[in-house]
Amino acid sequence: MAIMHHPDVATLMSCSAGSQPEALAAVVSSHLSMCPACAREVGRMSLIGAALFETIAPVEVASTAPIVEARAGEADNPPPPDVRPSGGAIPYPLQKRLGLTSFDDIPWRRLAPGVWDHRLPLTEGATGDLRLLKVAPGVKVPEHGHEGEELTLLLDGSYSDATGIYRTGDVSDLDNTTEHAPVSDPDRGCICLVASEKRARYKGLLARLLQPFTGL
């Protein structure tokens, strides 16, 4: 099935610059593993980094190449190639992080009727929030806005809001100008990977999720 919703161009640029907060980078790299079009785009965008890299004023380097060479001798073992497994419903970058290949093996935590989550650890010092969210069929999330950047990657099932239907591989790229009230697929519900660059904001959304649902 064709992917209809891609990350914003600015979001892809931040990815190619390597300046994206970790949680958001997790969503983008997972999407790139499913979306050749965006992967190509990010490849093209790395030209910007390379072009700017060439214009940076050089700084004197104290160590000389021979020192590096001496160390290079120690490290003269090419790293094992990164072999991608085939199959599995979880995108490869996420599989690597989770150590799991099936959504069934995830130790889901029940948050509210029809809503489960599983938090993914971020590196110490990272400020965002990254979690998998599983929503039962036909659940309506109350209307809410967003603060800072938030990315949602649909991994299974679907949900819809005023901007359209989101299916496997689709990304919803939201910032503080957007308000929406998504409803999960009436038959399958959905599983998504949600990243927010700010933790506090996400707590707000969870609080709203915990409010009584309509449509359950």
């Binding site: 970790e22 790395s46 980094g49 390379a50 060439e54 190639p81 072999v83 991608r84 590196t123 990272a126």
Partner: peptide
């Protein structure tokens, strides 16, 4: 140049920000 920039960029993410890089190198696949 692009390749070396990418390596520098990923090392920067890993070491400087102490965040694990989610971005594979362009040679990521075997």
């Amino acid at each position: 140049t692009t390749w070396i920039f990418t390596i520098a960029r990923n090392l920067r993410i890993d070491k400087l920000r102490r965040e694990v890089s989610w971005q594979p190198l362009p040679e990521g696949h075997a």
